[in-house]
Nucleic acid binder design. Sequence first.
RNA 1: GGGCAGCUAGCUCAACGGUUAGAGCAACCGGUUUACAUCCGGUAGGUUAGAGGUUCGAAUCCCCUGUUGCCCACCA
Length: 898
Amino acid sequence: MEKVFEFRPAEERLYAEWLAEDAFVPDWSALGPGYAVLMPPPNVTGVLHVGHLLNGTLQDVLVRRAWQEGRCVLWQPGTDHAGISLQVRVERELAAQGVDPRSLSREEFLAHAERWRDGHGDRILHQMRKLGICCDLSRRVHTLDPAYSRTVLHAFVELYRRGYVYRGRRMVNWCPVTRTAISDEEVIPQRRRGKLYRVRYALVDDPDSSIVVATTRPETIPGDVAVAVHPSDGRYRDLVGKFCRRPFPEAPIPIIADGAVDPDFGTGALKITPAHAAVDFAVGQRHGLPLREVIGADGRMGILAGRELAALTREEARERALQLLRERGLLLGEEEHLHSVGISERSGVPVEPRLSVQWFLRYPRVREAALAVTEGLLRFFPGHWEKTYLHWLDHIQDWCISRQLRWGHRIPVWYRKGADRDAADGRHVALDPPADGENWEREEDVLDTWFSSALWPLGTLGWPDAKAMVGNGFDRFYPTAALVTGPDIIFFWVARMVILSLEFLPGDGSPASLRRRIPFRHVHFTGIIRDGRGRKMSKSLGNSPEPLDLIGRHGADGVRFGLISSAVPGQDVQFSEERLAQGRHFCTKLWNACRLRLLQEGEPGCDRSSWRAIGDRLCAGELDSIDRDILFRSLEERRRWDRALAAYEFQPALLRLERFFRDDYCDWYVEVCKVRLRREAAGRSFLAVQDFLLRHLLQMLSPTIPFVAQELWRCLRLGGDGELLQKVLLEPAEALERLLAGRGIAFDGEDRRRSGALRAVLGAIRALRAEVGGSGPVYCLPGVRWEEGSRELLADLLGCGDFLPLAAAGDRPLAVTAWGTFAVDRDGGGRDRLWAERERLRGHVEASRARLAEGSAFLARAPAPVVEGARALLEKNLARLGQLDDLLAQGGGGGKLP
RNA sequence: GGGCAGCUAGCUCAACGGUUAGAGCAACCGGUUUACAUCCGGUAGGUUAGAGGUUCGAAUCCCCUGUUGCCCACCA
């Protein structure tokens, strides 16, 4: 076995082997229900970042663990066509080549887009392979694949048929850069410092009087069709019904009363621009006001804005409008104003509320989607995200699903040429075009990318094509077991998948039906990765490390271990490369622990190729408390491990296991075994114990650090030749306990006590030696009663030969005795420690006594078992205190003791 | 404006109503006899953000305040 684990070549070799053996292809022969995980499809325009690594690692752990349980496993990968994002990228590249994208026909543009996608396509998926992910790439799905596209269009047609999809002229969030509508979820509110201007609108029949409005957007003045005040606002009561003069283009507009106006904001008078603000639109509807669209689709001012403003951008128009107001003496004042502006997620510019004809989805099954969670059929980890989800469902708004883009699923609607597009008979909504295609024209818009993503659980498993569903194992894998994703897409993706899946799979709101129809049973939300200073990882900040470099430096295993160990459940992840280095160190130590095991055995080597083989080498008679304790401690750890993983508590689980490996196995048990080996004691069962522990550890760790675990599995000959560790059944703790029982090995509390006492004494003596800076002989007070073998073992672990009787000590003897956890040095070096310990104990005892004093409130009110416990504790502490006092008396002599 | 989550050692976190709050990292001290590109042992470090309340007992439950991050909301 090599002295060091060269992870770079090993990882490459092992991964190639796994691929060659089709190790990630679902095993249809496996019994029991399937286990499926849907990988959140990375964006085709995306770049691999540390978040992908964390997310991928966690899913890989779940999936590999499912393999270990012998289940039929599917980890479904794929990519998302990233509508807006990709179209913008391609348009920018075309523009850089001097091609105006708008001059291209739809087909020409799509050809460019497809070429771009095919070039970048699933790069992230391939990069993630460096991490060792075990998804079956042969099953990858792209949202624009023909089969998946049919799923999407079929869903649209069905939703239309069922009355959930409708076409409407509405106020939408318009992105002037990409020139498309976007959904409410794609608008990011941003705090911005702006100005609130007060503008005078003169009254038509009394030009000396006026009404003053407050606005942050003077450029929309040309779109004003009214000024509104609150109906109960006394200041303006007399003005309601009169007309005032819009400054430009000049025109009389009515002063109206509407409850939507907040009398306490600004001047209490609101200019109404129905075409460019949602509230104003509503007011306009109520009052039958006309629409004046003064800002065009490209964010520039239109003809109606008047000669002065037309053709300017929104920003230029604002400056110009202010200038005009100043010239005319209409600008009465301006003040700093902090307000929130909706920013388009994709282009980063303020969205423009704009009236346009779009397709909307009225969400179906909202109540059932909530019920699935409140009934506990669909569970979130950590659970508090359920509130966020339910709150969104409670306030759900129709979803604008059409996009004025070319890249995406073109909406399957045809309009009869020349007919009214809103008339039902002028429309053909179906997967296929009408027979007399020449008389129809197809809808230009495409569907929101998230609409297609929302069908991911159904589409990837073949729905609605019955044959494909059978081929893809729908019945076996649906509902999928777990989804691992970031909480930032809980509405964008998670909730929508739930809703559409519930709609399309037949059933009612009963728990049994919901359980069958939800797309996944568990959702684990990971934290967002932040840098050491708490900032989000981002390219522009330059704080985002290159993932592949990290893997190069620390190995896939090191990165996986490190990321998990920094991912505290329910919290954002503070990234630190130090953690990854620790992960690498852990792998190195594991490697060395296994190497040591091989160095310890002569030829021929032991058989540890199965649990049975190891069990056969365990002779109950050769084991003592230390062996039994560590064996059963390992089973305890295993149970905790299982419990923690079932709750998606990866980090606490892994850290605990690491502690067990380092502290209990390496620093205690292996050191004990070294002593035994040196002594050439009869019996080698402790080597079998090591094999038992290492085998178990490697199996538990394999999902987290698959490469080094697999390599060690082979080096230690823990399985047959070329056996895939990932597919070796992980026996439940109960089975291992039965195996031990079958060999006559049973656990007894006394084992834990003795083993613990020995470790404590060892620690105490070491501490004392460290304190006095010695490594010389260790002395022992007379009268110490050693348990069988303990004295020799401790002396060997300390490397001090034997404990010398204190009487034989020289001038500056280092005297140590073993009792409980205490040690003492005759010169006083250890006495302060003892004294401090005694003080601590005395404090406990006194507190306990006070609590248990006759007539105390504690005695009167506390439940009986608690009182019992307190009494027992007092007894225990009293006993220790007494022994401690004896010890202090024996070692005493200095003036420090009472 | 509403909601969610956090605030515990320099840093990252435990402690899930029950002894006088514990780990890891960093710091400092010491040891490394060949498993350990490192490892081991030890020392120090706390008014649990602040105030009030409930309780026999509070880091833990409740109320208020402060603070940080996130989400939602049409304040122009």
